[in-house]
Nucleic acid binder design. Structure first.
Lengths: 214, 214
DNA sequence: ACCTGAACACCGTTCAAGT
DNA sequence: ACCTGAACACCGTTCAAGT
């Protein structure tokens, strides 16, 4: 019984691991934003040679996918056995909360093609009640995707990564809108110049859930 | 009358202009994708020193914003005077068509914070009929934003920039889904493994328009 | 007013070498 | 198995110089 299971401490055991790398990468994104992420800077933060990262992660793109999966994994599974509407609503809220917890990293989830199976648990949680409610599988998938599209679109805006087509709340903007010469824009200017994300989210989600789970 | 309006051909008149730069940049994105865009490569294609671009464009980020505005400007204004539902539906289709015409550039529109007034024309076109139909301004803006969020989310998926949470149509995937051990996922696997974008778009848009413009 | 080229401070990744 | 550092082929942008 030598302990250590055949892993002699030898020399440069830096304690690096995929998990530690992803955690530090997420912290870096939270602090400095996506544009600031580089393999070299991340290595510096970990006190390690840049090339060491490649022993645990497949390159920069795989690193970003990894961060996305960490975020995705934070979505809580809804309590089983509750009704269709409650389940869908809880999942949507969980998704939103997970993204708003890391707004600068959220675009990684919202804009990347993720191959992972990580996200299948939420899919199951939505699809189950839809099928149980009598939806034929193809319509259930349509419904799932419609809600997902709305979620992605709203969250991109909340996270400041999507076009508002009108404003972000600064004051000069209100004047611009009023003076645009477009009558409807001018009339709605006070509302275009602000965005209550919470209300926006509830409004859209309400429409979709009314249609899918009345 | 000297003609030439005080612009002597002098020397290195390269014929560069903001318009020519943006056009070539869009072509570059169409051909090689967003990741391949660099000031230096773009300059090479234009037969010009990289730094010359900075006389017409404010840097790489402004260049990307410029491309996005070119795309946005391609959305046709809907015929005025038609009904609420027709107007919203036409605009949604026009937006979608403009993005699908340049799928690799579309993320620039869908994921960037655009300060431009370029997009106010479509906003006016939607808001006008909503207000005329008796919507109070705040609810009209809610409706506008809900549709926009759905559009952004669906288009991100169509353009392969968003997570599907299940698949992209390859065949190994279907097997994975069926064998996932998740009963609802397995039952819906054939539908999760494919995505008829047209049908998906109509389904979601239909729900929203039914709620907003019945 | 517009164009140029050298220079600076960065990148991601390959490869050969170490332990 | 994991870590290192030199090297390669790139980046965006500043600045001084040209016309």
């Amino acid at each position: 019984m030598t302990g250590r299971r055949g892993r002699p401490p030898k020399s440069a055991d830096s304690g690096l691991s995929r998990e530690r790398i992803l955690k530090e990468a997420l912290a870096l994104v939270d602090e400095e934003g996506l544009a600031a992420v580089s393999m070299r800077k991340l290595a510096r933060r970990l006190g390690v040679d840049p090339m060491s990262l490649y022993n645990h992660v497949d390159g920069k793109d795989a690193l970003l996918d990894g961060i996305a999966e960490v975020l995705l994994a934070a979505i809580p599974a809804p309590a089983p056995g509750t009704g269709l509407r409650e389940t869908m609503s809880a999942l949507a809220r969980g998704f939103r909360a997970a993204m708003l917890g890391h707004p600068r990293a959220a675009p990684l989830v919202l804009t990347r093609q993720l191959a992972s199976m990580t996200a299948l648990a939420p899919v199951e949680a939505v699809l189950g009640p839809l099928l149980a409610a009598g939806y034929p599988p193809d319509r259930a998938v349509h419904g799932l995707r419609a809600v997902l599209a709305f979620l992605i679109g709203t969250l991109m805006r909340e996270v400041d990564a999507a076009p508002t087509f009108s404003s972000t709340g600064d004051l000069g903007r209100l004047a611009d809108l009023s003076a645009s010469g477009l009558p409807a824009v001018a009339e709605a200017a006070p509302h275009l110049a602000v965005c209550d994300h919470e209300a926006e989210f509830e409004f859209g989600l309400g429409i979709l859930l009314d249609a899918l789970a009345p």
